[in-house]
Simulated assay, not measured.
Amino acid sequence: MPEKTVLTSAELAYINQLTSGPQTESGEARGGFQLDGGERANGLLLQLAAKANLTLDAELDDYCMSFPLQLTRDELQTIRLQLAPPTIYERGPVLRAWRLHLDEPLPLLSDNGDETALSVHELSPNGLLVDAGPQKAPKHLHVRLALPGETPFMIDARRVRVAEDGLAAYEVEQPHGKDAERIRSYLYEQHQRLHPELQPELPVDMLVDTPSHS
């Protein structure tokens, strides 16, 4: 099986140049790449996108980033390729999703929006490190999470272990598409804040939202 193709930092900087065009008059996000590989090549990509998850993988010194690729086709049958917010992986003995240590814990909310005794101290695309307060950490969570500046969305998770400091680690069931993107986008922004040396190569505005399909 061939090795997976990855992009270097220099290649990512070139992609940034290609995606740094102005926004449209209507305020829409940048449109990504226009594909013009011919009818057969474009058709093959559309078939693959319909049956598999396509990604663009970038390898940096201490991190790997996997950008989901999304294909859209407009009324003129023009195909565009867009980059969604990436999953960030941290290098080490085991490659694992990068976890954000929150300076200010995020409270978990009940269905009616009230704060619970639970708060999130670490966040990853598929995991939470939760302080349950005086109560025992529940085996399952069905709560709402509000990222800073965002509306709350539902989180379902199961407890996988309890740490020595009393914090409990939870594995998050795969959230719905847009909610998963919101988590990845927030983590990506925070990763850039903590690692400004990467910002010239990986600006947040190179990512575009995918139009919703009816």
Score class of each variant (00 low, 15 high):
R96F: 10
A157V: 02
E122F: 13
L102T: 05
Y89Q: 02
Q174F: 03
L167M: 14
E122V: 06
Y63E: 02
N112A: 13
L167N: 15
L118K: 00
R99P: 05
Q77H: 12
D165L: 04
Q174M: 12
H176G: 11
K139M: 09
E181N: 12
T151F: 09
G92C: 01
D131H: 03
G127S: 15
S110M: 04
G133L: 13
L95P: 05
L100R: 04
P125L: 04
R161S: 15
E173P: 03
A146C: 07
V172M: 11
P105E: 09
A137Q: 04
L76I: 15
P85R: 14
L81I: 11
A146L: 01
L106D: 04
R158V: 06
A84Q: 14
R80M: 00
K139P: 05
G113N: 11
L123Y: 10
G113P: 07
E122D: 12
P68N: 01
P175T: 02
L141S: 09
Q77L: 12
I79C: 07
I155Q: 02
D111G: 05
G113T: 11
E90C: 09
A169P: 07
L71Y: 01
P148Q: 08
R182F: 03
R96D: 14
A180P: 03
L109T: 03
L106I: 10
V120L: 01
Q135N: 08
E75T: 14
V172D: 06
